[in-house]
Design a protein around this nucleic acid. Structure first.
Lengths: 150, 150
DNA sequence: TGCATATCTTATTAAAATACTCGGGATTTG
DNA sequence: CAAATCCCGAGTATTTTAATAAGATATGCA
């Protein structure tokens, strides 16, 4: 039940883009350096995000990537689904075209995996890049207040 | 974010044992046949479950396995944790000894993985073998009622 | 125009994890 | 004793992961 680096790196990279919103296209190299990710590997991940419309690219010198739409309209769930495939702890309850199983109607364990899938989806779809930016801001002021009292 | 066969087979096998409660020790071979699992592979999984006290073994002819405690006191989460390791979508929020990360205090993505972990744990720890038996019974009567009306 | 900077695309690969398989030993019942 | 069963460790084929590499394409700027 682990996320691969694809999902983790992808969320990091998208959040990095959100943090640099309005600064024009951001080069992958700078994202990779800030987040400590292999640039070439990140390239592959971002390629998928671009095809899904989550980022837009600008080629050539001074090029780079920007968010495909407003941060409030990009959910962490959207990112994870692109990079890790449809949410599903097991294939028979996949969000899209679940694997057929003859016993599905009478399967008790299936109900469990459905609940797990839905609870994960609820969490990931309730968090947007915008809400993450707000959280980061809050974390920042909390920390500076804390420093102040010490 | 997939469960491996270890977790899936393990839950199936434990539920099978619950369904045969009170029939004395159940041989692995019969569980493997009913559930369509490789017997030798299941052996490895059950070995872990035994060390964790979730099943008891009886060696020798007519031997087999029984549940280690009442079905109401065995949560699906207990089974998954034994077979798949501590719940954690990423290592830095592992349920036990999470991987150290210097940026943990100010990490926004970390909060996400914590929420995911907790929501998964909530689901898996709310389901016991006993509640699964009840669900199975209910599914059964629902299906026979349905058949009756056709 | 030409060079530096980027994205884009495909192929290859090393290492790890997964899902078994196999062989043999220990223990108990009939 | 023989059959059934659990117990244990080693070996292995396949798949996935996480990169790495090499080159093609596009663009801004001097």
């Amino acid at each position: 039940m682990k996320l691969s680096t694809k999902g983790r790196y992808g969320v990091k990279a998208m959040f990095d883009l959100a943090q640099h919103l309005g600064e024009g296209p951001i080069a992958l190299r700078s994202i990779a350096e800030r987040q400590g990710i292999s640039e070439h590997y990140l390239e592959q991940l971002v390629s998928g995000l671009r095809k899904a419309g989550l980022v837009k690219s600008v080629r050539g010198a001074q090029g780079g990537y920007t968010l495909g739409r407003e941060p409030g309209k990009i959910r962490v769930g959207d990112i994870i689904r692109v990079l890790e495939g449809p949410l599903a702890p097991v294939d028979c309850v996949s969000e899209e075209d679940p694997e057929f199983c003859a016993k599905a109607e009478s399967c008790v364990t299936r109900c469990i995996w459905e609940k797990v899938r839905d609870s994960i989806a609820d969490v990931l779809d309730s968090i947007t890049l915008e809400s993450m930016l707000e959280d980061a801001k809050k974390l920042e002021t909390d920390r500076s207040l804390y420093m102040y009292y010490i």
